[in-house]
Amino acid sequence: MIHLENVSKIYTNGVHALKNVNIDIEEGEFVYIIGPTGSGKSTFIKLLDGEEIPDTGTVLVADINVGKLKHSKVPYYRRNIGVVFQDFRLLPNLTIFENIAFALEVLGTDRIEVRKRVREVLTLVQLDEKAKAFPRELSGGQQQRATIGRAIVNKPKVLIADEPTGNLDPAMSKEVIDLLEAINKEEGTTILMVTHDKALVDLHKKRTIALDQGFVVADIMKGGYIKHD
């Protein structure tokens, strides 16, 4: 599903954010990406969603060569993946229902279809009662579940989350990780989650890829947080 071969990324300011990275992730996997700050985790995500282009190597997602995509084709590619950020990025003057529906309306989906699918997703992320609420009326965990709902509403093959629990307390983080696990299991979505959260990684053990200074320093199937000193 995701295949990185000899990928390097150098920003225009000369920072070598990723160095010769090779990663293979199969369909339906749930993988953590860990590493200290500045190790290139977000850069890795930006390469996957087409925001940045690798300087060398190939990035394949669902057999699409993301780095080689024409600018005008990027939006159509993005419809295959869902992205969740640490800072939610919900539109404040739309309700939760509208926020999730937004991702479908943008694609020109039929109204009735939108309504049906948003209802489904609201149930999946357990926000049925909050459909008419505005983002500010929700807790952080609930807001993050809403963004996850928005990310999966068009049934993407891959869900990428950049520190989705970064702003949440442990209880709320658990809500989010439980939801991601449910999506992984029920919809078969491949999930990639960047995290700093040691406790979470130790508790919900999964394949874990560790980055440090742009290198892949570990790729552990059994999971568990790796100590950096």
């Binding site: 969603d49 419809r79 990025r89 694609l107």
Partner: peptide, 14 residues
């Protein structure tokens, strides 16, 4: 601009 950024993230074309 926030809305535009989100539109781009969910795959809206130009």
């Amino acid at each position: 601009s926030d809305e535009i950024a989100i539109m781009r993230h969910v795959g809206a074309d130009n």
